[in-house]
Design a protein around this nucleic acid. Structure first.
Length: 555
RNA sequence: GCGCCUGUAGCUCAGAUGGAUAGAGCAACGGACUUCUAAUCCGUAGGUCAGGGGUUCGAAUCCCUUCAGGCGUGCCA
């Protein structure tokens, strides 16, 4: 509809010029927007104001010229008004909306989808938590955001792959091994000093116990480093399995689990470092090897090989990101915790140095989650091992509520997550507000089939014509905005736009529901209204699916 | 110190590409269930868009500056 208005204005402007109403043929791009105020029409354009300077005419005069030249062969317009400083306001005839309603039924589940992605291969990498402990709430937010972004992009025609990068090498893995080994030794009554920088959580003890069960005391007789290494592998596997289970319970799945260690095993890290050395992008100083990230906009150069000969995490990341592009992804999106933002320039630098464009790489920074219970902060400290895990949250409030709440904020604003509120089944909790729409419509559908013997509604121009209530037209208008909302959500990588859209649509539906009865003695009207609300159901279901939230038929 | 993010109603937050009288939800107050599910609806009230300057027909939005909070600024990840 917006496009139609835009085209119509475009033609009118050109016609006006042909008719000699404008001195110059230089026309700015036509912007059409939806005024908040109903009195200002369904759509409006500011074109007259934008043209004022070029044409050296008063905006009002320009608007008059354009309006006089409007052709409306499809008869979509009710009327056209010039208002304020020179806005042209368009009022749409009710009948013009009906084809859009029909379109929703015809497209069904595909309504709102598009091909703006042109089947381009795109990767979303998210969560990627170290396999050194269970996922916590912050990871949950990242998981919800990443998964939803992937859903949305896929819906918009991208060929999306979801990937989890496993940091299964390096120091933190050794620390994990050491932590487990020490706890293991403890089990045999050996007095051990447990360092502060080891992992403190109880899950480490559980792993040590499992290890004892399966392997008895054999690790005690191994060389210490070998034992630690075995502990590390053993623990990482158990923890990673736990992470996978937690994610499945949170309805998040991945297409690929990519091992950091494999980058070393396949010599990819070695290769890229040699390559960059040859290109003089990596140089030696103070016994270490430095990447000239400052040539690509970073504030200083970064170490890739330490003085002790070990590579840094960054070295693996250079190889990893290059590998992403080598695997054929045109666009790569990383979802990180906001505390890693200082890392962006150096990865962007590595992408550029590898021969790709900066804008092919994008980072979504997800802010922290403050966990509350009844308004009181819940103590969280990774250090002491006292943190609330994602699993605990999902067990307590459910996956739907958790995911929805994670997506009710722009990911760049910090989020207060109140466990008590999330578990509440009242209108303080927006998940149920939206899901309730779906349940209500399903319920009406069941009732219609039982009592009115009405099942499938076919498009019937004459029946649909009975939809004349302002609330009904408004519902259609809002549903027409769904595809635009999905697109803008994909372009900006902001899933919360879908969340807010759904809350708005839900609000309109609930208001309609309370004001007008769908099922009545008037069979035609009943059919028309069923046709309308089933469309609402389709859109709600679609939007919730993009968020990874279920759409229940009963509540 | 430097860099990034944030600052909008009592609280939690939306307001992409500058547009008309800045919007929701919660909390507060007043109403609506012999009714397709009250997990709902209707109404009232609530604002110096952190402060100040600038850009222009027009700024919550862009620029400069001040203030407040968070994060980053490792040969850690």
């Amino acid at each position: 509809m917006k496009n139609k208005i835009q085209n119509l204005t475009q033609r009118a402007t050109e016609n006006a010029y042909k008719n000699g109403l404008f001195p110059f043929s230089d026309f700015p791009e036509i912007e059409v927007e939806e005024p908040k105020n109903n009195a200002q029409g369904d759509y409006s354009t500011n074109i007259a104001m934008k043209m004022a300077k070029i044409q050296k005419m008063a905006p009002h005069k320009i608007a008059e010229a354009i309006v006089s030249a409007i052709e409306d062969p499809e008869k979509i317009l009710e009327k056209c008004e010039i208002a304020g400083p020179g806005f042209i306001n368009f009022f749409i005839r009710n009948e013009s909306w009906y084809p859009f309603l029909k379109n929703i039924h015809e497209k069904g589940k595909a309504y709102g989808s598009s091909n703006i992605g042109l089947c381009k291969k795109l990767q979303v990498e998210f969560v990627s938590a170290n396999p050194t402990g269970p996922l916590h709430v912050g990871h949950g937010r990242g998981a919800a955001v990443g998964d939803s972004v992937a859903n949305i992009l896929s819906f918009c025609g991208y060929d999306v792959q979801r990937e989890y990068y496993i940091n299964d090498s390096g120091r933190q893995i050794r620390t994990l091994g050491l932590s487990v080994f020490l706890r293991y030794q403890e089990l045999f009554g050996e007095p051990v000093a447990f360092p502060e920088d080891c992992y403190q959580g109880d899950y480490i003890r559980d792993i040590a116990i499992a290890l004892q069960k399966n392997h008895g005391r054999e690790l005690l007789f191994q060389k210490k480093e070998e034992a630690i290494d075995r502990c590390a592998k053993y623990a990482a596997e158990i923890i990673l399995d736990g992470i996978k289970t937690d994610l499945i319970d949170f309805h998040v799945t991945f297409d690929k689990w990519y091992s950091e260690q494999s980058l070393f095993d396949s010599k990819k890290v070695e290769t890229i470092i040699r390559e960059f050395k040859d290109k003089k992008i990596i140089y030696e100083k103070d016994g270490a090897n430095w990447f000239k990230t400052s040539d690509y906009g970073d504030e200083k150069d970064r170490v890739v090989i330490r003085e002790n000969g070990l590579t840094t995490y960054f070295a693996a990341d250079i190889a990893y990101h290059k590998d992403k592009f080598l695997r054929g992804f045109n666009r790569v999106i990383d979802v990180w915790g906001a505390d890693h933002h200082g890392y962006i320039p150096r990865i962007a630098a590595s992408v550029e140095a590898s021969g790709y464009k900066k804008d092919q790489f994008h980072v979504i920074l997800v802010q922290l989650v403050n966990l509350l219970r009844g308004g009181e902060p819940v103590a969280m400290s990774t250090r002491s091992g006292e943190f609330v895990t994602l699993k605990e949250v999902v067990d307590e409030v459910g996956s739907d509520a958790a995911r929805f709440i994670f997506l009710t904020r722009h990911y760049e604003s910090p989020l207060d997550f109140d466990l008590e509120l999330a578990a509440k089944k009242t209108n303080e909790n927006p998940v149920y507000y939206v899901q309730y729409v779906h349940a209500r419509i399903s319920s009406i559908g069941r009732k219609a089939a039982e009592e009115k013997k009405i099942n499938v509604m076919d498009w019937d121009e004459n029946v649909i014509h009975l939809l004349q209530e302002p609330e009904e037209i408004q519902l259609i208008q809002q549903m027409v905005k769904y595809p635009e909302t999905v697109n803008s959500s994909a372009e900006t990588l902001e899933p919360h736009r879908i969340t807010f859209y759904l809350m708005n649509l839900a609000s309109s539906f609930h208001a309609y529901y309370n004001k007008h009865k769908v099922l009545s003695e008037n069979k035609d009207l009943t059919e028309a209204r069923l046709y309308l609300i089933v469309a609402v159901k389709i859109v709600i279901q679609s939007g919730l699916a993009l968020l990874g939230v279920s759409a229940p038929d009963k509540m």
